[in-house]
């Protein structure tokens, strides 16, 4: 396997009227070509912000720390994403080597521009195809993602398509420039369950065909179990557990990951009550000291959890967790 992406010490704060808010705190992970990584967490855990950092797509009040280093390994050498400044330089990570699909396909197409025009626009920015060739490639892509009558759909607007069709079109557009990395921000959350399965199958197929890496953002561990090779769990801007998807789901180690899995409804026994994680994710303005999860943790060990930020330690080979239960001092 070849390395595709290195994210090292990603720390990101937003300048707001209430002061600097930490959205992502010292997040590091890697992704190989052809690998699917699930990025899991509740709303507000910083998973979307983390993903957008890879394209430097966060709003202009975002401040990255000096230690932040994001490297994209392309065939013609590594690209330091934090060093990209002009919109010309940024094109490689915006729609070129990296594409992104969003949660709401309806809202992510411009309402008064045809789907075809938006696809052609992207191809003309990133490739040297002319308008005619771009149109042919776009229609081929629409056809490839299973949209019937692609030639007609090409001329239509997002509001004229069904929800599943729109997300397919979004995927077709994202993949038309043959990116090396696809960022999928909750791509199936807004879809019906049956359509959800179709879209996930489609994405799995395409990953195989195109050999690209995917960062798959979701709050749904069920989707991750089906789709991802490895998983990283985020809470309040920090990674708290990561590893191969089977390891993490079979043997969740962080109390938060355990809670997430316990909170999944079970169809086998409809009488068991759901067990939600108590409490709410704290406001980013009131980040707890020590372990960020200490306000809701069921095994809170007192002082150490409030005083010290837990570092990663290995549960098994390749499965790491940031919890004092597994660190030297607190380990049982």
């Amino acid at each position: 396997m070849t390395r595709l992406l290195d994210v090292e010490n990603l720390t990101l704060q937003f300048d707001t009227d209430e002061g600097r808010i930490t959205a992502v705190d010292d997040v590091s992970f890697t992704l190989e070509a052809g690998e699917v990584m699930g990025l899991v967490g509740e709303s507000g855990s910083g998973k979307s912000v983390t993903a957008k950092s890879i394209m430097k797509l966060n709003p202009s009040n975002a401040v990255y720390s000096d230690q932040t280093k994001i490297t994209l390994h392309l065939d013609d050498g590594p690209v330091e994403i934090m060093g990209l400044q002009t919109s010309k330089e940024l094109q490689v990570v915006r729609g070129g080597a990296i594409s992104m699909i969003f949660q709401e396909p309806m809202a992510s197409f411009a309402p008064a521009i045809t789907i075809g025009d938006q696809m052609v626009e992207q191809l003309m920015i990133h490739t040297d195809m002319n308008a005619k060739r771009s149109k042919e490639v776009s229609i081929e892509m629409l056809d490839r993602v299973g949209i019937s009558d692609a030639g007609t759909r090409f001329k239509q607007y997002a509001f004229e398509l069904s929800g599943g069709m729109r997300q397919r079109a979004m995927i077709a557009m994202a993949l038309s420039t043959k990116p090396k990395l696809l960022i999928a921000d909750e791509p199936t959350t807004a879809l019906d369950v049956t359509i959800q399965a179709q879209v996930i199958d489609l994405m799995k197929d395409l990953v195989k065909d195109f050999g690209m890496g995917i960062v798959f953002i979701t709050h749904d561990l069920g989707v991750i179990a089906q789709t991802a090779d490895k998983v990283a769990v985020m809470y309040l801007g920090r990674l708290i557990e990561q590893g191969a998807v089977r390891d993490v789901i079979r043997n969740p180690s962080h109390p938060y990951t355990k809670g997430l899995i316990a909170a999944l409804p079970s169809l086998d026994d409809l009488d068991t009550p759901l067990t939600p994680i108590p409490g709410d994710i704290p406001s980013p303005l009131e980040r707890p000291a020590g372990c960020v999860f200490n306000t809701r943790c069921s095994v809170n060990m007192g002082e150490i959890c409030h005083a010290k930020v837990p570092q990663f330690s290995a549960v098994t080979q390749g499965h790491n967790v940031a919890c004092h239960l597994f660190n030297g001092e607190g380990a049982k």
Binding site: M55, L57, L90, Q91, R94, G95, G96, S99, M100, F102, E104, A107, S108, F109, A110, P111, Q118, E121, Q122, I125, H126, M173
Partner: peptide, 10 residues
């Protein structure tokens, strides 16, 4: 969102 999405396409 469509403006962010367009920016994400370059």
């Amino acid at each position: 969102l469509y403006v962010t999405a367009a920016a994400a396409r370059g």
